[in-house]
Structures are given as C-alpha cells and as structure tokens.
C-alpha cells in the first residue's frame, strides 16, 4: 500500500513537472519534436528569469561592458544589425556575423561551423573569446557570487546561493530556449488561420521549388552544413566546418541559417557580405562560385526573373514574427538589472 502511494506520488510529481515545463515551453503544433532534452534541465520561471538577467548583463565580460545582447539584440531577431562582422569588447572585430537566436531547442549544433554541440555549453564560447567578452567562466562565477543580486537569484532558481558554472550555463540555456518564433504570417497560414496574398503564394511556390531542401520548413533550416558557393573572402580565409572536422570535404561549408525573421536579421551570410535580400537572391541566381564541393542542391542553376525575385521576397517577409521581436518576456529585465547599478 505504502509503495503504491509512493509510486502514485512520484507519478504525480513527474506529471506536474511536465505540465509546468509545458506551460513555459510549448511546441508549436506544426513544429517537430525539439532536440533539446528538457528532462536534464527542466524549465522553471525563476531559472528562465535568472538566465534572462545573465543574457542582458555585461558582468559576463572581462570589463563588464559587453553582454550577450550586445551582439544579439531582440529587435533584430537576436543578431547584430549593421555589422558584417560582429564586434565585441574594446570594439574588437570578430571574424563572423553573429547568428540570430530563435528556435534553439530544435538545433543539434551551434555556431556557423557547428563547433558547439550543446546549447548549455554554447555561452562558454562568446564569454571566453578574446574578441567577444574575453572573460573566464571561473571569473564570471566569482563576480556573480559577490554581486548584490545573483546569490539570491541563484537561490530562488536552484535552491543554492553557491553559484557554479553548471548552473550559470543552464540558466542562460533556459532563457534561450524560450526564444521560440512561431507566430509569423507563414505560421498562421500553415495553421489555416489566414491566407497568403497572390504574390506571397507565388513566392512560396518558388521557395518550395528552389530553396526548401536546405531551408526546410517549418524551421527554415535543415541544421546541416552546406557549401553555398560563396567565393572565399581572402581577408578572412574562413573555411567554416573544416576547422572543426578537419575533413577537406567540409571546406567552405557553413550552417544553413534559419530564414525566420530574415527581414530584420541583415546583413546576411556567415561574414555578413550581403546587405539585403536582393543581393542574396542575386548570389543564388548568378553569383555562385564554381567549385567542386558545392552542395548538391545548388548544382543545377536557380533561375528567377526579376519579378519572381520580388515575389520570393514577398514570401520571405511573411516569416517575420512581430510577437517574437517585441515580446516583453524576451526583453531587457530592467526590474532585475536596473537595481544593481552602483554609484
């Protein structure tokens, strides 16, 4: 009898936990199952809030000037507008364009070259990169431990005011996992709540024919690495995935980025070489550099008339999700951070 009660209680706690997680992270009905294992880091409100504070707090950088949001601002779909190459601490220039951040629970690797394979460990890269935040996670933890607010926030989140690297990274993950974009016009059309205009529909059909094999719906990326025929920028000599795998077949391959919110995530490509969508489409129709490692999907030429390019762009703009871009739950947590400014 006692053991039955224990089993029932355990079942109740597990189910209650799932329901709690569910309400904080809802898989959109037309999305696949997420890749992130939520059982290893179950979402809670206090952990998400802690992660949000950390995401926006420059305390993560060596001289407390650069936060994650410096290169990932909400209004631009959490990327860095206006800069082909993102800049970090002391205005040092990096060598890639910061990727937009959304729907990260569905990704299996991170960065343009997939160097990071787990969301929890992703933040370590920008924190320690000398061109980005130039700080050590050990120092971050000790700075957090002596701050006015974080021991309490960690206590609320993890039941322990002793701050660890593990909990710091998991909290940042929790916030990033909530950055789900699934409320664009495209989504409402897929859910049969609205319909495309004639022009958007033509653009959608062109997209399905020419682009969807790599920019796979509904996430608009297949999360793979492809060589899309960009000529090598010899000022950077960035060979992409090759740096990680050291496999010559991976030379010049980069992660296929999502096209969601592409209206706001300019400039485009891993080095931000294209300023607008027209330049991107012109690349695919007439700019592809001939090399023998170009992805199979691009071996046959893509032919689009000027009108078709306009139609395609009309479709791509249906991927903008204003609810996501202006969601107050994703914005700067002034209620937490503004109280910490010291005189």
């Amino acid at each position: 009898m006692k053991s039955k009660f224990t089993i029932l209680s355990a079942l109740f706690i597990i189910l209650a936990g799932f329901r709690l997680s569910d309400s904080l992270f809802v898989t959109p009905p037309h999305f696949p199952k997420p890749n992130y294992d939520f059982s290893k880091n179950p979402l809670t409100k206090s952990k998400i809030q802690l992660g949000r504070a950390l995401f926006y707090d420059p305390i993560l950088s060596r001289n407390n000037t650069i936060s994650c949001s410096s290169c990932h601002s909400q209004y631009s779909a959490f990327t860095h507008t206006d800069h082909d190459l993102s800049h970090g601490i002391d205005d040092r220039i990096g060598f890639r364009n910061s990727p937009s951040l959304m729907n990260l629970a569905w990704k299996s690797s991170f960065m343009w070259d997939g160097a990071v394979h787990h969301l929890d460990l992703q933040s370590l890269a920008p924190i320690s990169n000398p061109l980005e935040m130039d700080e050590k996670i050990e120092n971050v933890v000790s700075k957090l431990q002596t701050s006015n607010i974080y021991p309490n926030l960690f206590y609320e989140a993890f039941g322990d005011s002793i701050i660890t690297g593990e909990n710091t990274l998991k909290a940042i993950s929790q916030f990033m996992l909530t950055l789900v974009s699934a409320n664009s016009k495209y989504d409402s059309v897929m859910l049969k709540l609205s319909s495309f205009t004639l022009q958007e529909n033509i653009g959608y059909n062109l997209f399905k024919k020419n682009c969807a094999s790599c920019h796979k719906e509904p996430l608009f990326t297949n999360d793979e690495f492809k060589n899309n025929g960009l000529p090598l920028d010899t000022t950077l000599n960035d060979l992409g995935r090759y740096k990680v795998s050291q496999n010559p077949l991976d030379s010049l391959k980069f992660k296929v980025p999502t096209l969601r919110n592409i209206e706001f995530s300019f400039p485009y490509m891993h080095d931000g070489r294209f300023k607008n969508l027209k330049q991107v489409l012109n690349h695919y129709t007439k700019g592809i550099a001939s090399n023998n490692r170009i992805s199979d999907e691009l071996k046959a030429p893509i032919i689009l008339s000027s009108n078709e390019k306009v139609d395609m762009i009309a479709f791509l703009l249906t991927l903008s999700d204003k609810q996501f871009l202006f969601n107050p739950q994703h914005s700067y947590p002034k209620e937490i951070l503004l109280g910490t400014v010291k005189n």
């Binding site: 880091n41 320690s128 996670i137 593990e166 909990n167």
Partner: peptide, 22 residues
C-alpha cells in the same frame, strides 16, 4: 561530453572544457 553542462569535477569552471568548441 554530449550531456550538456555538468557539475562537480566536470564543471566548466575547472578549466578543463574547451570554449571555442565543445
């Protein structure tokens, strides 16, 4: 290695985790 952020001796603050790649 594929399990995400871990604690104890495996905590990344121990200086035994690469940062530029996983």
């Amino acid at each position: 290695n594929a399990a995400g952020a871990l604690g104890g001796d495996l905590d990344p603050t121990k200086g035994m985790y690469w940062t530029w790649q996983s």
